[in-house]
Design a protein around this nucleic acid. Structure first.
Lengths: 331, 331
DNA sequence: GTGAAAGCGCTAACAC
DNA sequence: GTGTTAGCGCTTTCAC
């Protein structure tokens, strides 16, 4: 069917071994042979079949990245960083989308079992520590964006606690004392930590938070709207809101705007992640920016070190965020 | 290193052929043998190495999808449809991001050359017809979202011309006669067709369009803003705008809002694609919705038919859009 | 500097 | 119903 290394060898008048050597840039090949091989490769339009190569070498030079959704610019930016670091070492990144369901995520991990990839990075995984730890025993994996309590694997996340703290601090610095939070019922480490930081800042500043100022739903857009309905129905309305994700912040802004509440002056809103739409929204949304590019590059570099046996790092790394103040928190 | 089919055969007391038969659900295996094999597979925690299988069978059961960006919900939705159709036939989808640059797109096509995938779908490709046609001679590929003039390959797109027509028609039906367009200088088939449909609707309704009502830049957000600046500086301002993408529509809305122009009443805006943020934006954005899921399923089904030799379809298919009217075009 | 040959893990004739 | 074996395309040891 297609042209193989044998065809090249025959046409070039050398052995397959020599062709292979040229292909892999091996030292001991005469200049004449190298030229002959390269010429016939071009002439026959040959490209090596990686299935053969990979089978032989027991590596694939590709890394699987599983993301819950492909619509989240946070993930996109992190993956861009990964691609950069991967390319630098001759690796390919291939991505797949789990929809945030453990079944699909598990199915996609098959690529690890069947040796189609050399390792995997799980973005915002929904798997439990048991699964992850047993996985890590046989394969090279890393977590990014979302840690997993009790998982003993390479993990790279933003400092969620400090981010939550700084979000609250930004609101406090603007003079707010009636500060609400839109969080989630899910027990992800990231949201728990963002919450924790938020409450720490409030406590540290002697601000207490009435029960009605806390809304917990899930990550869906409707919950941002529902939160605002709850807050605005209170006798003593909050003047500022921290949403643990930008999507929830956008939803909150939308709902408040629809209710005639003026964002910025009457109600300050700050989100988390700094997704692309923050600066496109009306008004632009203040947020806590994750160092996406850096996180992506870092986790991939570390993972490749593990894969190549240069390290065996199961460290938990937190990276520094940036506070982005925009119109949604007023001038 | 890892457990192979041989190990399973030995442990189960059968030949590798029998194990392979069980693995592939082949008929002629006794119940006893099947049980023995399945038990040892479980006991040894065996999973087949696909590199071996794929090399032998000369197939990988995976399809590459190249997208310009992973931040565009249009692509995400289409890929979701593809994944559905692929899974139904036992295929995996793997995606990669080209950043809309031919160099990266070309590099990613290596997976086709080196037999890592059985075929590829190019979303919004930036490659020329020459490249695509020669590619199609040796590999199974399809285009989706964005056609390519002169490319003789399976193509699935929305009916851009009719979409542009209907967008203009929606504005005309609202009583507008001063209608501007934000388009692009790039020569993509999709934007050309959207424009064409737009002008056809205007002409058909006896509306002519002053030079200043046409803005052409690129797909970037800033261009939506620049367009509004151009329009609002005119003596005779337009009362409605068609933007050939939702991003440009959002930018236009943002700029107009910043200028104090009331969207909906003073200026109607309609976009194209119906990305997720259309219904989250303030105001919500009217748009022309592509039938993403259907397009994804369809193109993949067709591609797999080509791959499996059931067809050799290089057809150009256009799918029907839906007009979504929201707040940005007024009540 | 080069070639012969073994073998990576698997499937599919083919023989029984 | 089951086993033996060739071979997919490649790399790499081992001779020379």
């Amino acid at each position: 069917m297609s042209v193989t290394i044998k065809d090249v060898a025959k046409a070039a008048g050398v052995s397959v071994a020599t062709v292979s050597r040229v292909l892999n840039g091996s030292a001991n090949v005469s200049e004449a042979a190298t030229k002959a091989v390269n010429d016939t490769i071009k002439a026959l339009n040959y490209s090596p079949n990686f299935l053969g190569r990979n089978l032989r070498k027991c590596v694939t030079n590709s890394i699987l990245v599983i993301q819950p959704s492909s619509e989240h610019s946070l993930y996109s930016k992190i993956i861009a960083g990964m691609q950069e670091a991967a390319a630098a070492e001759g690796y390919d990144i291939i991505t797949s989308i789990s929809n945030g369901t453990p079944e699909i995520e598990n199915r996609q991990l098959n690529m690890l079992y069947n040796r189609t990839v050399d390792g995997a990075v799980l973005l915002g995984t929904v798997l439990g520590s048991g699964t992850i730890n047993s996985l890590a025993q046989n394969y090279h994996i890393a977590l990014c964006c979302e840690g997993c309590q009790g998982a003993d694997v390479l993990t790279v996340v933003v400092d969620d606690e400090l981010g939550g703290y700084d979000a609250a601090k930004a609101l406090i610095d603007k003079g707010h004392t009636k500060i609400a939070i839109i969080s989630t019922l899910s027990d992800t480490v990231s949201s728990a930590n963002r919450e924790k930081g938020f409450f720490r800042a409030l406590e540290q500043n002697g601000i207490d938070i009435p029960e009605g100022y806390v809304y917990r739903g899930d990550y869906g857009y409707e919950h941002g709207r529902a939160a605002i309905q709850q807050f605005m129905a209170l006798e003593d309305r909050p003047t500022a809101v921290f949403a643990i994700s930008d999507l929830l912040a956008a939803a909150a802004i939308k709902e408040a705007t629809d209710m005639g509440v003026k964002i910025g002056s009457e109600l300050a809103v700050i989100g988390f992640d700094d997704i692309t739409w923050c600066e496109r929204y009306i008004p632009t949304i203040s947020s806590i920016a994750q160092p996406c590019d850096e996180m992506g590059r870092f986790v991939l570099k570390k993972l490749l070190e593990n894969i190549n046996g240069k390290a065996d790092d199961t460290g938990y790394y937190t990276m520094k965020h940036t506070v982005m103040l925009r119109a949604s928190t007023g001038d």
